[in-house]
């Protein structure tokens, strides 16, 4: 399970970084979102992955570390708010600058997806 989990986190991070480095605001926003998903997964695993432990009710059973769960909840909430903000900001940039390039330069090239 560790290998699968690590691969998923790694691939998500790689995709996130790749998209964040793109030149248009939409891929950048998607990249940041993927990056925050990857980080949430990573945080969740930081107390060690355990598939057969319960929540912490009675300390006589093996229980999963509750702290990463609390932290990941905080991180999800913050990440969600930030993503919402950056989406609105990207739309505002499109409106103010008349372009969705992160440098604010007008380009007449066709969109990357259409190539």
């Amino acid at each position: 399970m560790e290998a699968l989990y690590a691969t998923v986190t790694g691939v998500l991070t790689a995709c996130g970084i790749y998209l964040t480095l793109r030149g248009r605001t939409f891929p950048v926003v998607v990249g940041l979102t993927l990056l925050s998903y990857a980080v949430n997964l990573f945080l969740f695993s930081m107390g060690g992955l355990a598939s057969k432990s319960t929540t912490i009710v009675d300390s006589s059973f093996p229980y999963a570390d509750p702290l990463p769960q609390a932290l990941v909840l905080t991180a999800i909430v913050i990440g969600f708010a930030m993503t919402a903000f950056v989406v609105i900001l990207a739309m505002r940039t499109r409106g103010d600058l008349g372009s969705d390039s992160v440098d604010g330069q007008r380009t007449d090239e066709p969109r990357e997806e259409r190539k």
């Binding site: 996130g16 964040t20 605001t25 950048v28 940041l32 990056l35 925050s36 990857a38 980080v39 990573f42 945080l43 695993s45 930081m46 107390g47 060690g48 702290l67 990463p68 932290l71 991180a75 913050i78 990440g79 930030m82 903000f85 950056v86 900001l89 990207a90 505002r92 940039t93 103010d96 600058l97 992160v102 440098d103 604010g104």
Partner: peptide, 30 residues
């Protein structure tokens, strides 16, 4: 215009920075 544009850079950079911060925290907790 100037504020929106520099704002976008600032926000994107800091969001990426926050992700790095969380990764570092995760490793340190581990």
């Amino acid at each position: 215009k100037a504020r929106t544009q520099s704002g976008l850079h600032y926000v994107a950079l800091n969001l990426a920075g926050s992700s790095l911060f969380l990764i570092a925290l995760g490793v340190l907790y581990g």
